[in-house]
Simulated scan of single mutants.
Amino acid sequence: MVSILRATAGCYPAQTRVRSRVMIALAAVLIGLVVLVWSADRFVSGAAATAWHFNVPPLLIGMVIIGFGTSAPEMVVSAIASSQGNPGLALGNAYGSNITNIALILGVTALLSPLAVHSQILRKELPVLLAVTALAAWQVADGVITHVEAFVLLGVFVLLMSWTIYQGLRGPADTLATEVRAEHESAENMALGRALFWLFFGLVLLVAASRLLVWGAVLIAQSLGVSDLVIGLTIVAVGTSLPELASSVIAARKGESDIALGNVIGSNLFNTLAVVGIAGGIAEITVPPEVLGRDVLSMGALALLLCVMGYRRRGQGRINRVEGALLILCFVAYTCWVLLTSAA
């Protein structure tokens, strides 16, 4: 009995230390996420306003500058995680954000306001998203993303962005360009000096918040004995996707469905190609076997479902409230799947 009591008593200090570490890490993650989302918004505003001052076309602002800006959290977090020896967190952040974008963000957005797909550019990019997801599956099938494969991803990203911009600028006026101009009309009134300040100050805060977030996420994983991949797929993925959630919901409430859907498609292409490419370029990524059969499979199934919704009706696609609820249920089921398999 005495030995049992001593053993039990000896556990309390260790349990207290673990609990304290987790609480500190959670605080770091929450503070990092709040600053990350705010700084990303400031960065996008400054970048868009700067672009307006230099007469950049609205379509280019929407597809490149705003697209890069809303995906900046994933990019910076994954780059820092990979450079600090946590490539699993980088990969989980990218793939988890893709699943969050389609299942949670589009689901919540469609539940609040059904989404209609008018833009021909977006309808062309839906099959591209499916093809890029297939490329990701092929790369992770052998259990590692090498430096060469990472540079292939970056090369495909550059070619894809160049083709999309070319198609958008040479064709007739597209609804996406009109909606971007209406959504960011206030950026035209921002002084150039103020725009440059928010551009650089937002970027500095973005990097600092990302470092804090990565530190907290790694500490949580170490304290709870789970892999950094799981933390990346869940907490970090949802947190870094908050800018897309905010912008998509606001755009949908204003009737700007193409911006809401464009945010998700652009972010997923950016995550799969650029974010994973940058992380893999910094350090080769060892891919656990469950990533292909669980995460990439879910990512591909959701991309295919999005293609069906975008193309199924003559003239335009549509995501109604029932389908939005279905997407949310898919997100809940996937999250439970991740937690159950990680516990096992």
Results as ranks from 00 to 15, higher is better:
A14L: 05
G46L: 07
L30W: 15
G67D: 05
F43Y: 11
A72V: 07
R6C: 04
A9H: 02
L60W: 12
V18I: 09
A79W: 07
A27F: 14
I24K: 06
A40F: 03
F68I: 08
A81P: 11
S45H: 13
I24G: 01
H53V: 10
S20V: 13
P73L: 09
S83G: 10
C11Y: 03
A47P: 02
V35E: 03
A27R: 05
A27Y: 07
S20T: 13
A7W: 09
F54C: 06
L30T: 09
A79Y: 11
L59I: 14
E74T: 08
Y12H: 00
F43H: 00
F68T: 14
G62W: 05
S82L: 09
W52E: 11
S45F: 10
I31T: 10
S20H: 13
L33H: 03
A48D: 03
V64A: 12
G10N: 11
R42C: 08
V37E: 06
A81L: 15
I61M: 14
S45M: 07
S20G: 08
P58Y: 04
V34K: 15
L30I: 14
S83E: 12
L60S: 06
S82G: 11
D41A: 05
R17W: 00
M75V: 08
L26K: 02
A81T: 14
G32D: 03
L5F: 05
G32N: 05
G10H: 04
I61V: 15
V29C: 08
A49I: 07
V35R: 11
Q15N: 01
M23C: 14
W38E: 06
S20M: 13
L33C: 10
N86T: 07
R21M: 08
L26C: 00
R42T: 01
I31S: 09
L5W: 07
S39N: 01
I65M: 10
L60Y: 03
P73T: 09
S45G: 13
V44F: 07
A51K: 03
V22L: 11
A47I: 01
A9G: 11
A40P: 02
G69L: 07
P13V: 10
R21H: 07
M63W: 13
A9D: 03
A81C: 15
A51C: 07
R17E: 06
T50S: 12
A7F: 12
W52G: 05
V77H: 09
A47R: 05
V56C: 08
I80Y: 02
S20Y: 10
P57D: 13
G10W: 05
A27L: 15
A47C: 12
H53S: 15
I24R: 03
F68Y: 15
G62I: 03
T70F: 07
A79D: 09
S78G: 08
I65L: 13
P13H: 04
G85H: 12
S45D: 13
F68L: 15
L5A: 12
A14S: 04
V29I: 12
G85K: 08
A48F: 00
I80P: 01
W38I: 03
W52A: 12
S71G: 12
V35S: 12
R17V: 04
I24W: 04
S78R: 01
A81E: 11
L59S: 10
E74G: 00
N86V: 01
A40V: 00
